[in-house]
Amino acid sequence: MSAEDRDIAGEYVLGTLPHADRIAFSARLKTDPALQSLVADWEARLADLNDEYAPAEAPDLLPAIEARLFPKPARRWPLWLGGLIAAAAVMVGALYLPPILSPDAPTVIARLGEPDAALRFEALHDGEALIVQRVAGAAPPSDRAHEAWLIAPGAAPVSLGLIGAEPLRVPYPDPPQGWTLAVSLEPAGGSPVGAPTGPVLAAGEINL
């Protein structure tokens, strides 16, 4: 670790790092454990200042937040019926199937981009996580990144992370039917402002 990095980590935590430097630093931070601990050290050093933030009553935004994160499945079997079916499935499974069914095989839940587009992405779900990967087209130039966003109807996009050579994997037990997935072109390291800043390269709706 360099003394320079340690000082920059301090400015990053303080919040004063100039915009361009902040973008560059955030990008390095995502993959550099040494930098992450420098930042954690500064967060801990300055944490006592947090006592000066006076608590303010927050409205109960939990329903809205939960609706974003955990959308209800479109329909549900009555509990007893679900139980019966599950029990029957277990019996049938015990008789006929080898016991290797978890996690589920990934299924495609959204296609981002028209079928003939040069750049296309796909979202899959394996019962535990959402997986977003590039299926056609080139990786972005080295100073840019492909960032994936999840957009609830009428809500602001929420970043899921960056899509690199490896597929992006985000724990997400119940993928939300009808929500939009999009990929935008961002500076390396991702959008510095928590919202898309570059052009949308591909988008598609989740269809379970």
Binding site: N50, Y53, A54, P55, A56, E57, A58, L61
Partner: peptide, 11 residues
């Protein structure tokens, strides 16, 4: 934690 974080964001 929401009251504390609301305080942070409001300030």
């Amino acid at each position: 934690t929401s009251a504390k974080l609301m305080g942070v964001l409001l300030r």
